[in-house]
């Protein structure tokens, strides 16, 4: 059962990544692009977790945790820059 479901789920998440990448390239305003980057890192976490289940290895969770940390910091820094014109005042 899992052997059938995991490739389907991987394909769905890959499609999700492709769509948020389209928004990153297309987005009419800058906050749209930042939101697309935010979605992109969340989707990457989903992809890494799925891949970890697929391979049966727990090595990928540290990478997922790091991506979550860095992605959050990146989003906050970018929106702070949009808000104030500066990151550290």
């Amino acid at each position: 059962m899992l052997e059938i479901v995991i490739p389907i789920a991987l394909a769905l998440v890959a499609a999700a990544i492709a769509m948020s990448f389209w928004r990153l390239l297309r987005g009419p305003s800058v906050p749209d692009r930042v939101l697309a980057l935010d979605t992109l890192y969340v989707n990457t976490i989903a992809l890494l977790v799925l891949f970890g289940i697929h391979l049966g290895s727990a090595l990928f969770f540290e990478a997922a945790l790091l991506i979550a940390l860095m992605g959050f910091i990146g989003t906050v820094a970018l929106s702070k820059y949009l808000l104030r014109g500066d990151i550290i005042e």
Partner: peptide
């Protein structure tokens, strides 16, 4: 999980 991730990005587009 996969379907909801997909729907989230669909909404973004």
């Amino acid at each position: 999980g996969a379907i909801f991730t997909f729907i989230g990005s669909l909404g973004l587009v």
